[in-house]
Amino acid sequence: MLEARLEQASILKKVVDAIKDLVQDCNFDCNDSGIALQAMDNSHVALVSMMLKSDTFSPFRCDRNIALGINLNSFQKVLRCAQNEDILTLKADDSPDVVSLVFESSEQDRISEYDIKLMDIDQEHLGIPDTEYAATITMPSGEFQRICRDLSALSESVAIEAEKNAVKFVCNGDIGNGAISLRNHSSVEKPEQNVNIELSEPVALTFSLKYLVNFCKASGLSGSVKLCLSNEVPLLVEYELASNSYLRFYLAPKIGD
């Protein structure tokens, strides 16, 4: 059986809020290492990969591999019934028909109990190769969100160009063009504004802004975001969570004209 207790319901609420417009039904794969999810969007252009390690929970117990097939719209409805600071416990049997959620207020003597009916989901699983990326950019997640939103007003696509010490986001649209350049930046006083660009070779790739704007819904999960790029491979956008957990998005590039 599965029993997983989260100190703060907000983590799961934010994860589901961040991915539910990209994927609708997905399996939460539970085993002794934690709870994982991998799902592609309908067009097979973007992929979500979530890992909530067992250390994220306290306690965490899962004796067998259990796949919880959940409709994310339903999941979101139930998670909205939890206060952000509630303690959240997920429970399921070994061959479950439902997943149970218990929300407990640490300050009040309130216990809320919900069940969500599970679905059988036949999901394709993709093997993602370990990649040494040519460019890894760490930047404030809010900054990345703003860039994507701003440029999406002008164009469907953005070119991300990483070169020594700088990364440039460039778009060409019907009404005009836009370009935002960021340089390596590190401040002791405001580390949350740091930009770090690690580069082994220059990279230039073009991506659909519609998907990037969607990924940025995860910005509330982490103050910083990591963009990993290599020529001719999908972009990795990673939000790191506590205890080595993460929410990752992969996006296939567009080819030039």
């Binding site: 394709e124 993709l126 093997g127 190769p129 073009t206 992969y250 296939a252 567009k254």
Partner: peptide, 14 residues
């Protein structure tokens, strides 16, 4: 839209 590749070109099904 035009020019958009899919992930199947890069990641294999397992």
């Amino acid at each position: 839209s035009s020019g958009q590749r899919t992930l199947g070109l890069f990641f294999k099904k397992i």
